[in-house]
């Protein structure tokens, strides 16, 4: 998962990612879905993402201990993880609640914003 340390509590991420993308895009093939997601991330509203990120940075900061740092996270990884919290496939009560009221556009705006930041 590359450069962002998300610690041991995120397990089985590869399969979750496939699951999330598959469920987000219904019957489309993985390759098409990924291209479409990348396109949406590229077009996302960074200002909206920055505003929404106000909810995240109360806990997530540049050098995270106890809570992973998410600045510079790969956008598609972010989308996958947030969708997995929203569907309760990932297990943390705070994150399930925070992700629970984000729609896909909001998650994509956040992904675009956090991925645009330096680590």
């Amino acid at each position: 998962m590359g450069k962002v340390n998300l610690r041991g509590h995120i397990v089985g991420l590869v399969s979750l990612r496939a699951l999330a993308i598959a469920s987000a895009f219904g019957v489309m093939s993985g390759a098409v879905a990924q291209a479409d997601l990348a396109d949406q991330i590229a077009k996302a509203d960074l200002g909206y993402g920055e505003y929404l990120a106000g909810e995240c940075v109360t806990c997530h900061r540049k050098s995270g201990t106890g809570i992973p740092q998410i600045n510079g996270i790969e956008a598609e990884t972010f989308v996958t993880i947030m969708q997995a919290y929203r569907s309760k496939d990932l297990d943390n009560k705070v994150m399930q609640m925070m992700a629970g009221r984000l729609d896909d556009e909001q998650i994509i705006s956040l992904a675009a914003y956090f991925s645009s930041l330096p680590e």
Partner: peptide, 17 residues
């Protein structure tokens, strides 16, 4: 234990914020 560690992360986060 994870919940406690999370609280420490939150403290660092909110004071930074």
């Amino acid at each position: 234990k994870t919940t406690y560690e999370e609280s420490v992360g939150w403290y660092n986060g909110i004071t930074s914020d």
